[in-house]
Design a protein around this nucleic acid. Structure first.
Length: 713
DNA sequence: GCGATCAGGT
DNA sequence: CACACCTGATCGC
């Protein structure tokens, strides 16, 4: 819950997302999105009175937010005071003090926040510096690097302060499956159930809040089934949403609500009241979207968990995970950061402790003005408002725009990446090897955190004490590898991998990328037995076999993994690890410094970052929804791994059915041995006399020629 | 009667 | 675990 008081230190004349107390005197109001906890005081009599006596007071927000706000009759009185600003369009605003006539200009830019329809972040630029207020946000790694308006030229703007959504700023929320993963998991569950018969319906147990629309849209688009909702008038001017929802109760997907939701459901009724159709009783399952997170030793990547006979929980998050937050902030690298939210168990100090190191103020508290502009670099220039999702979130009612671009793995990204590469080097990590910075550096950072957090995360289950070290690292990497922009402060703006996702270049295409792999799956997806096979499992029995169904489906989806052997999939994470490693080890080296092992996991990489995420299509659902069953199997592997001792062993062991990976590992370890460094081609073994000669020169302080001697290790 | 706040529930 | 609500009780105007 936001505890932001509404005002920025730099621009106290503005009030954002809070409209009570002192905020009543603001010269201008801003609303980042339409969630109640950001609208405190917005309909209070005090503010209403103020509006009545003024023509100047305005509330600025995105067009979608304006629409959502004004379709609620309780906020109708705002009608003449709301100004919709186009997203990603810098706008000058005059702040006039109505009593003194004092005036000040400020430029504000709305940036998509990925939290709910119409949600935005506000970037203010004025006399007191550039300030970013994020509101609530969920941005995948690397997305900041893709926001053109956060940059000027090829660099990140010099941002004084960031007022940050720190909801999940705690290592225990290290990883939250990407939107794509979650969506795919839900999609497949819904697909398999609804395809059994027209009487098999799904109830999405969503909260009464904006933010699930993209889920509805994607399900509808993929399955051709509209989603039943209680109300849709607020979307009357948003055809992209409107088209996929309905008030007709006779549809197979419901997101309707009723005060006694659960009672309805237990009585085999939907909240809207229906329980049968044409005299045939409905078979209803419920899916409850809820946040699921993983510490860094992400073993479980199940996005769907079965919680009962016919109830499921599906991963879904409106907020950025810990690693996403850090990625975002480190890319921006502001002088100051102020948390908007206190994570529940945490204190402000703790949050600041985590975030400060990512800011410039941390280096020299005394001089808040320190501006290492050289550090800021960006990856992409053009903004590709990726994904349909963005369109929604972006606000654009009009957003037909960039769509075309996304559809095709379009381009240009690579080149941008390249550019960034050349950007100046940052003082901070200049010591790092340049080639690898991105992944490497960030990795380093994250890894540290991981360690500590490891435990707090749910000390979870399986007694895998051991496996984590290496494994974690791998996972971590994968994240980093994935596209993230991570740390601009250090070096290249992360974005690297991501280019691979949609670039037409062959080399990139085959390289590091699972990006394409996933897309390939995507293609195969439908055909992959899910429909057939899994369905049969599901069918009738509902009870028992259901759980199985998912898993089977899952495995079938991950066909791309299957090449490694039938048993691989039981331990998804591990499997994935190996597989992707196998595939990308070599190529990845181009990004991460060598450590093939590190690069590995990328598997998820592209996915998250694949930001251009060409729409929410079914990526291979790979690790996506893994059934409970899988968890169990997995834990077994983990134990095995523990015995084995090192992660590497673990990998090998698991991988024995998978051809090369183990070889790869061994080879790596060998070649890295100091004893195996080959002699330089023309090197000659120095003769005794020569040596003598050389030593003498050295002793005399003279220089010796550069041809180096072999012994020089 | 309305709003603000808190507790409790999903 | 949390989110973003909703309902209901209480208090004050």
């Amino acid at each position: 819950m936001s505890r932001f008081g509404g005002r920025l230190r730099e621009y106290p004349q503005l009030s954002i997302d809070r409209f009570d107390h002192d905020n009543l005197r603001a010269r201008a109001y801003f609303l980042s999105h339409c969630h109640k906890d950001h609208m405190k005081g917005l309909r209070a009599p005090a503010l209403r009175r103020r509006l009545q006596g003024s023509l100047k007071v305005k509330l600025y927000c995105s067009p979608v937010t304006k629409e959502l706000l004004l379709t609620n009759s309780k906020y109708k009185f705002w009608e003449n005071h709301v100004v919709a600003l186009e997203v990603e369009t810098p706008t000058q605003i005059s702040l006039v003090d109505e009593t003194t006539g004092e005036k000040e200009d400020i430029e504000v830019t709305l940036l998509p926040a990925g939290h709910c329809p119409g949600s935005v972040m506000f970037l203010f630029q004025g006399e007191n510096g550039t300030v970013l207020y994020t509101g609530d946000f969920r941005l995948a790694k690397g997305e900041a690097a893709r926001m053109e308006l956060l940059h000027s030229g090829t660099r990140v703007k010099d941002i004084q302060s960031v007022y940050l959504d720190t909801t999940f700023c705690d290592p225990k929320f290290y990883h939250i499956p990407s939107r794509e993963e979650c969506l795919n998991g839900i999609l497949e569950l819904v697909r398999s159930w609804t395809s059994l018969s027209r009487y098999h319906v799904v109830w999405l147990n969503c909260k009464a809040a904006y933010g699930y629309e993209y889920l509805f849209i994607n399900l509808s688009e993929e399955l051709g089934i509209k989603v039943h909702v209680n109300k849709l008038d607020m979307f009357k001017n948003m055809p992209e949403i409107l088209y996929h929802i309905t008030t007709d109760r006779y549809t197979q997907i419901h997101a309707c609500r009723h005060p006694k939701d659960d009672d309805c459901f237990r009585g085999n009724r939907l909240p809207c009241g229906i329980s049968c159709q044409n005299g045939t009783p409905l078979r209803v399952i419920s899916i409850k979207p809820s946040t699921m997170w993983f510490g860094e030793r992400i073993k479980k990547t199940n996005v769907i968990v079965r919680t009962g006979e016919s109830t499921y929980r599906a991963c879904f998050s409106f907020h950025s995970s810990y690693s996403e937050i850090k990625d975002f902030l480190s890319y921006i690298c502001p002088v100051n950061v102020y948390p908007n939210v206190l994570p529940v168990g945490g204190s402000e100090d703790k949050v600041v402790e985590i975030l400060q190191p990512l800011c410039r103020s941390y280096r020299r508290n005394a001089e808040p003005r320190y501006k290492p502009l050289g550090t800021l670099r960006r990856a992409c220039k053009r903004t590709l408002s990726d994904t349909d999702e963005d369109e929604l979130f972006d606000t654009e009612l009009t957003s037909t725009r960039l769509k075309a671009a996304k559809c095709q793995g379009e381009e240009s990204k690579p080149s941008k990446t390249a550019q960034c590469e050349s950007a100046g080097r940052n003082t901070k990590e200049s010591t790092e090897s340049y080639t690898a910075n991105t992944a490497y550096t960030s990795l380093k950072v994250d890894f540290v955190d991981c360690e500590e957090s490891n435990d707090d995360d749910d000390d979870d289950d399986d007694g895998d004490k051991e496996e984590d070290s290496e494994k974690n690292r791998a996972q971590v990497l994968s994240h980093e590898a994935d596209g993230s922009s991570t740390a601009n402060c250090n070096g290249t703006p992360g974005n690297q991998p991501e280019p691979s996702a949609d670039i037409p270049r062959w080399d990139m295409f085959f390289k590091c990328n699972k990006g394409d792999e996933s897309s390939e799956n995507e293609d195969n997806f439908p055909s992959s037995a899910d429909a057939g096979g899994s369905q049969s499992l599901f069918s009738d029995s509902d009870g028992v076999s259901d759980s199985t169904h998912i898993s089977s489906q899952n495995s079938s989806q991950s066909t791309h993994i299957s090449e490694q052997g039938s048993q691989g999939w039981d331990s998804q994470t591990d499997t994935v690890l190996i597989t992707s490693q196998e595939r990308s080890a070599a190529d990845f080296s181009c990004f991460a410094r060598g450590g093939s092992r590190t690069a590995v996991l990328s598997h998820e990489a592209p996915k998250d970052s694949q930001a251009d995420n060409s729409r929410w299509k079914p990526l291979g659902q790979n690790q996506s929804c893994a059934p409970d069953v899988i968890c169990d199997l997995k834990s077994e592997d983990c134990e095995k791994g523990a015995d084995a001792g090192t992660a590497q062993d673990l990998l090998v062991e698991i991988g024995d059915s998978s051809r090369t990976p183990d070889l790869e590992l061994k080879r790596d370890s060998q070649s890295s041995s100091d004893f195996e460094i080959p002699l330089t081609p023309d090197a000659e073994i120095p003769q005794r006399e020569k040596l003598y000669y050389l030593y003498r020169k050295l002793a005399a302080g003279e220089s010796i020629m550069r041809k180096n001697s072999p012994e020089k290790r």
